[in-house]
Nucleic acid binder design. Structure first.
Lengths: 181, 181
DNA sequence: GACGGATGTCATCATTTGAAGACATCCGTT
DNA sequence: AACGGATGTCTTCAAATGATGACATCCGTC
C-alpha cells in the first residue's frame, strides 16, 4: 500500500496535474492519467481538491513570479522552462476557451497577473499608447511561439536551438514598442 | 424527412465540421454537434467520410489559397476572415498536438502549405538567413494572436477594433525580417 | 408501376470518463 | 491495546461519445 502522507500525496497530484494539463490541456487530461502519474488513486483528487476542475484551478497558482516578456533574461528563463517542462496551464489558457465559466475566468485572471500585467505596466510607464492591447498582443504572440514549439506541427521551430528561438522571439517582441524614429 | 441530396448533405457536414473544429478543436467537437449544426444525422458522417477523424482531414483542405503573412492585404483578409468565422482547423493545428499520427501529420502538412511555405519562400528570396525558422516563428506568433483574440482570455485583444489589431500585428510580423541597418 | 440502390432515421453497443461511496488499513490519542 | 479519524483502494454508476447495423423511405431505371 502507498505510504500514508496526505500532504505529499496532495502535492504529487498537483504536480502531475500541472504537467498533464500543460501537455494535453484540461479536456485532454483524465483524472486517471493524473492519478497514474502521481502514483495515487484518482479518487483522492476528489478528496483533496473536490473535483478535476478545482484541481485545475489549483494548478493555475503553481507558476512562479510574474514575468515581463521584454526583459531578455526573463524571456530566456521562460523559454527555457517551457522547453524543459512544456508550457504551463496558464499559457495554454491564452488560446483555449473553456466552457466552464469559473475555469475561464480563473485562467484569464492568472494569465493577466503572470504575464500581461507586468508588460502592460512597463509599456504604460514608457508612455506608449494602447499599453493594454500591446501587452496582450505580445503575450499572445509569445504564446503562439511557445505552444507551436511544443506542439511540433512547426518542425523548424520545434528543432531550432533554444538560443536561436530566443533571439528571434526577442526581436519580434521588441517590435511591440513603437520604433524610435 | 430531410431532403435527399447526398452531395449537399456531405457539404453541409463538411462546413459544420469545419466551423466546429475551428471553434472547439477536434476533441472538443462531437459528431452529434456536427450533425446538429448541419441538420443531418451524425451517422451520415460515417457514411460519407468514414469516421470523425477522416472528416477532420477533409476539413483541412477547405481553406482557401496559401497566404503570405507579410503582405498587408493578405494579413487583413486573414484577420477579417478569422474575426468572422473563427480560426480555421489549420491554424488551430499549429498549437495543438494530436495523438493520432495521421491527423498530426496531415495538419502539419496543411499548415505548411497554407501559411508557412509562402512566407518561407519570400524570406528565402530576400536572402534572409534561417528563412524556415523565421517563417514558422511568424506563423506561430500570428496563430497566438488569432487564437488569443478568438479565445477571449485576453480582453483587450478580444475587444480591440480589427484595424488596431491589424496594424500592430503587421508591425510585429515585420520584425521577423532583420532590420535594415 | 415494380424493382433496387441510394439516402436518411433510429436504436443500440462498447468505451471512456468524472464522480461517489463502500470498504480496508494505518496511525495518533487516550 | 482500544478507539476513531485519516488515508488509501476498489467497485460501481451515469453520462457522453464514436461507431455500427437494422430499418424506412425515396428516386431513378426498366
Amino acid at each position: 500500500m502507498r505510504t500514508r502522507n496526505a500532504s505529499r500525496t496532495r502535492d504529487e497530484l498537483l504536480v502531475a496535474a500541472s504537467e498533464l494539463f500543460a501537455e494535453r490541456g484540461f479536456d485532454g487530461t483524465t483524472t486517471r492519467d493524473i492519478g497514474e502519474r502521481a502514483g495515487a488513486d484518482p479518487a483522492l483528487i476528489a478528496r483533496y481538491f473536490g473535483s478535476k476542475a478545482a484541481l485545475y484551478l489549483a494548478t493555475l497558482h503553481t507558476d512562479d513570479a510574474p514575468r515581463d516578456l521584454l526583459d531578455p533574461e526573463r524571456l530566456a528563463d521562460l523559454l527555457s522552462r517551457i522547453g524543459n517542462q512544456g508550457p504551463g496551464p496558464v499559457l495554454r489558457a491564452a488560446v483555449q476557451r473553456h466552457d466552464d465559466e469559473a475555469i475561464q475566468g480563473a485562467a484569464q485572471t492568472a494569465l493577466d497577473e503572470r504575464l500581461v500585467a507586468p508588460l502592460r505596466a512597463r509599456l504604460a510607464a514608457a508612455g506608449i499608447d494602447r499599453p493594454a492591447l500591446r501587452a496582450e498582443l505580445a503575450v499572445a504572440a509569445f504564446t503562439g511561439i511557445a505552444l507551436g514549439r511544443a506542439a511540433g506541427a512547426l518542425p523548424a521551430l520545434r528543432d531550432a536551438p533554444e538560443d536561436d528561438v530566443l533571439a528571434l522571439t526577442a526581436e519580434l517582441l521588441a517590435a511591440i514598442s513603437p520604433r524610435t524614429t
